[in-house]
Simulated scan of single mutants.
Amino acid sequence: MALVVRLFGHCRQAFYQSKVDIAKEVEHERKIIEAVREIRGEDPGIDGYKLWVMLIVLFGRDFVPGRDRFFEILRRRGLMLPPPKARHTTNSNHRFHKWKNVAKGFVPTAANQL
């Protein structure tokens, strides 16, 4: 192990410390996911940004990762909501008038007749 670690320019302690750091990060992420699932249990339609703000209020800024990292965690676990569908409605109260088709039935016999 010492030879492999030396090849990468680190000491053995750095290798084992990185394993401990990864374990802490996984545990921290698990706590965040549990909190998200609990909140989503009460309100399933709440979006990611509101979740992020709620967790900051509940646990403090030091516990919750940044917004983009938080979204990445949610995406990886499949907890992001699908994007909302665009809603289009017809606006019948506009200033553009619908004119009668005066060329209906007209058959031009030469250029520039219509």
Rank of each mutant, 00 (worst) to 15 (best):
M1W: 03
A2F: 01
L3Y: 07
V5C: 10
R6V: 06
H10C: 08
C11T: 15
R12K: 12
R12F: 05
K19E: 13
V20Y: 01
I22S: 13
A23K: 15
E25W: 12
E27N: 09
H28Q: 14
R30S: 11
R30T: 15
R30D: 10
I32T: 07
I33Y: 01
R37I: 04
E42F: 04
D43W: 07
P44N: 03
G45P: 00
Y49W: 12
K50T: 14
I56K: 15
L58M: 14
R67S: 08
R67G: 04
D68S: 11
D68Q: 11
R69Q: 10
I73T: 08
R75C: 03
R76P: 00
R76W: 01
R77L: 05
R77G: 02
G78T: 01
G78V: 00
G78R: 00
P84I: 06
P84R: 14
K85M: 05
T90V: 11
T90S: 03
S92K: 15
S92T: 15
N93D: 11
N93G: 12
R95D: 14
R95N: 15
H97Y: 11
K98N: 11
K100P: 04
K100L: 09
A103R: 08
P108S: 00
A111M: 06
Q113E: 15
L114P: 02
